[in-house]
Amino acid sequence: MRASRHSALRRTTAAAGGLVLAAAVAGCNQTTGGGAAGQAFPSDTIEIMVPAGAGGGWDSTARTMQEVVQNEDLVDESVEVFNVEGGGGATGLAQLQEDSGNPHALMMTGLVMLGALELADSEVSLDNTTPIAVLTSEAEAFVVPAKSPFKTINDVIDAYVKDPSSVTFGGGSAGGSDQLVAAELVQEAGGDASEMEYIGYSGGGEAIAGILSGDVEVGVSGISEFTEQIKGGKMRLLAVSTADPVEVNGEQAPTLQDAGYDVDFANWRGIVAAPGLSDEQRDQVVEVIDELHGTDAWKQALADNNWTDFFKTGDEAEKFIKDEAEKTKQIYEELGL
């Protein structure tokens, strides 16, 4: 369902303490569509759009950023996070276009979105944004419900190679990094990736419900999305996608390479701003993100969430995203998705 809050917040000013007056002034500026050149950033509430449902990886990244920026007083304005579901991020990306030129309109992005845009044959791409930074990378986790007959990742892959219709995979939006890593894995194991049944969910909560109810047999998503369920004993972690081991619930999780598959895959997440920003505006936003990256609170959050620090900003980020888009396109063609 659609998030009603986006537009609501657009018309909301920070009520906290002495900010009222400043916010009211900022409110006047709003109608002019963001700050003009030379204006300090931020001059208004920063709005981070999560182009997916609540409870997913983008959502928790954005909310962590919000928390750190506000708790550490990195900016004078407040930071709001809102969700726009749909199309693996395509809906949010389309909506971001409406805020062209406004440096306060930010959006989470990542590998997931590249794949989804590729799959949807979308008219807008990440070229229609102003890249700000790449922030984190995260291992993908393969999980099954606790009562599943699959005990190891090898069980899953063997079953799949024998009969692709015997296993249904499920995770984030179709075409996203979750499907990509599953496809890469079966391809590597000698299976036919184009036969794969994959069910995409637009939000971590829904995917968890789908895995636990038995709609899908094997869940694939960022490891942080399943941590609670693994800890609670409701899900079993079969493997993580990175070559570097990851610690989950006090234990070292098996990697795909441990299981004998030569896959090293990490899902990265970053943040972009609305298109049409001047270089000066972009650098102002980058500066805030840079400051955020330097805080201890952010480092702690990375550790807590099992995210790997993967920091690039500005031009470097722009180049990285472009390369990744190109790479994703290639993989898609190879896999015949």
């Binding site: 726009v84 579901e85 749909g86 693996g88 809906t91 389309a94 276009q97 995409g200």
Partner: peptide, 22 residues
């Protein structure tokens, strides 16, 4: 009305961007 959550196609929007979000 709006963009289809699965395919990202616009539906019942009469070509208007302001209806993309439903």
């Amino acid at each position: 009305v709006g963009l289809d959550a699965v395919s990202g196609q616009s539906r019942f929007t009469f070509g208007s961007i302001s209806l993309f979000n439903g």
